[in-house]
Design a protein around this nucleic acid. Structure first.
Lengths: 356, 356
DNA sequence: CACCAAATTGGTAGCGCTGCCAAAAAAACC
DNA sequence: GGTTTTTTTGGCAGCGCTACCAATTTGGTG
């Protein structure tokens, strides 16, 4: 462990010089400028200031300038807490997502936040760790902020969550899954179709002895859907899954590597392996690389997600590219536009890389 | 492009059956249960309900049950907008981060959100795209929510941002950088030290003809700090940087690969390359793999961040592991505890992998 | 049983803003 | 100039909750 040295003025680990009297643990909030004070400073009524700042209703150019000058002079920052309480409908959008480690969700957030920011909406989030109970608790906490919409992953929610969301009257957006009935709005693609197409592709390429390496499917139900459709398709073509290796915990490159190693130790004559996602598949790829297993002649590898890194490895990964950012964008657009209930299928793209 | 088929009841692309009268674009908000209604239903005063729900102040066990029963029966969800307005100090924490593509920031959010959720705080975020002007605008928008704290990346902010934050009276947390003076709280490590240690390590290993492949440094100032310290250290040891390749845009595996390719095309006799981060370094690694360039004998590679994937490739990546999740955790803990101003150095760890 | 302390409870004034309405000012018209 | 129309403006009642204070009840005690 190489410790860093803190290189600015003071001694390492010491607080930097601060403005004097902050010795106590308690931090005093300085009095804030209110709209009423701006109104008085500008010599106009409160509602006039409100109208000018929201650019809503009518006011003269002269008034506008007086108000803006006062705002500037006093350093007024509107209080959206108060504003939201007074008006109907907030501009908060709540995200209740399973994880931030799985790049899928940051990607969705990225797409959504760009659209939301443009429309002066504010994104709020919390992380469930794929735990439906936690999802319920966090969704309840979110509803307390009276958001314009709640965005969740997929269709699997507790009864309590569904009941609560329905009763809330706010928009409900279910993301990244279309295999089921949407509560209100759904944006994504069919995981079952993805599993099916993956299997069909491998079969078409002539692979018959196919294995699977995946992470905890009980938690990640979308991966579970892909897997079951994958197996069904194999069964329908008389090439049932030969072996599987399921690792507990989250997906990761390391788990993919470990999973493939274990799978091959048990079952030597596989000709292709389907992974629960690209992280896992990359782990498998690296295992083959390290062990000198020729890809795809000796063993084919197929992933899911279409991460950028999959295209940069020596042999581009065969996988399915999912529209993660677009899912976030479309979801946000529908919320902003207050669109009617609907399910939007964004599809996916099968990438015929060099690993299968 | 393989289109998915939406497999549930209706036709693909059609909205699923909904509860009847949602034909209009406008969505009606149903009347919400208020605390006053709960109070009446429970036959107690409003303040009693408030005390019970917040578990604050005193009330009898019997009262508590009556209130909880009413809450249950009516499906009451407290309104935190109103609660926050009425009380002093909110439980919102605002994150103004440069990006969600760079895994660094999701990692920080992950660490922070776990701690915040435990303490019933709520995380809000927006994304600046490494644009200081946008940071200022978004910080202003954040302050309108009167958060308990604003968390930002690093020390480089516009004058306007600093002035505004200072005036806001809320806690300011600067993350992932310690090379400069903190406004209030800072949590992270020294990027300059990281650059220095990286150079020292390569020199110690005997590399003398060293190059650099990086992404847009004007935007990612922390990468810029690492690079300049790296160069200074090389200079101090009479082994100045031989060549550099800076790619516009964000860091990515593909850019790393492309960057190394270009660098080697221009300068053939390098013996080591320092990358702006692990994504870029992995790209470089893959380039060598594809081109048959022996690592590290022919060319050494050194990264930054210590991503998990770097440990799963055939030759573990030599890099510096940064405490990203811990940075988020500590930052959140300090905010929750309302700690005094301070700079917390979490250090970093140099990983002697197999690529340098 | 009177009396005092402690525990419990309810009333109510805001928190800072928006939405509504009526008043005032400006513009348009005869 | 008088009148109608239009634009601009200010006043004020909430939004749903918490904080404070006073009122009430409870539990001892002498």
């Amino acid at each position: 462990m190489v410790a860093t040295r803190w290189s600015s003025g003071g001694q390492a680990g010491q607080p930097p010089q601060q403005s004097g009297s902050d010795v106590t643990m308690e931090f005093k909030h300085q009095p804030t400028v209110t709209l009423a004070e701006v109104a008085e400073a500008a010599g106009v009524g409160e509602s006039t200031v409100s109208r000018v700042l929201r650019n809503h209703g009518s006011f003269s150019a002269k008034t506008r300038e007086r108000v803006m000058a006062a705002v500037e002079r006093l350093g007024y920052v509107p209080n959206r807490i108060a504003g939201t309480l007074a008006s109907t409908g907030s501009r908060l959008v709540a995200f209740v997502i399973p994880s931030l480690s799985n790049i899928v969700f940051p990607d969705v957030l990225r797409g959504a936040s760009a659209v939301l920011e443009e429309n002066r909406y504010q994104a709020v989030f919390s992380v469930t760790d794929y735990d439906p109970g936690k999802e319920e608790a966090l969704a309840a906490a979110m509803l307390a902020w009276r958001p314009a919409a709640v965005m969740l992953a997929g269709y699997e929610h507790t009864e309590g969550t569904v009941k609560m969301l329905r009763a809330s009257g706010c928009r409900i957006v279910e993301l990244l899954d279309l295999d089921g009935d949407a509560l209100d709005i759904a944006v994504g693609f069919s995981n079952r179709a993805a599993g099916r197409e993956s299997a069909a592709f491998l079969l078409k390429r002539g692979y018959r002895r196919i294995g699977y390496v995946g992470h905890d499917l009980n938690r990640d139900t979308r991966a579970g859907k892909r897997f079951s459709s994958f197996c069904e398709t194999l069964d329908a073509h008389d090439a049932p899954l030969v072996a599987r290796e399921i690792l507990p915990g989250a997906s990761s490159v390391e788990n993919g590597r470990l999973g493939l190693k274990r799978l091959l130790a048990r079952t030597s004559d596989l000709d292709a392996v389907y992974f629960s996602n690209d992280d896992m598949a990359l782990g498998g790829y690296f295992h083959c690389l390290a062990e000198g297993i020729a890809i795809p002649s000796k063993l084919a590898i197929f992933g899911y997600n279409g991460l950028d890194i999959g295209r940069a490895i020596p042999q581009p990964l065969s996988t399915i590219r999912t529209p993660r950012v677009a899912t976030g964008q479309i979801a946000a657009q529908l919320v902003v536009a207050n669109a009617p209930p609907q399910a939007v299928d964004l599809g996916f793209e099968l990438i015929e890389g060099a690993t299968a």
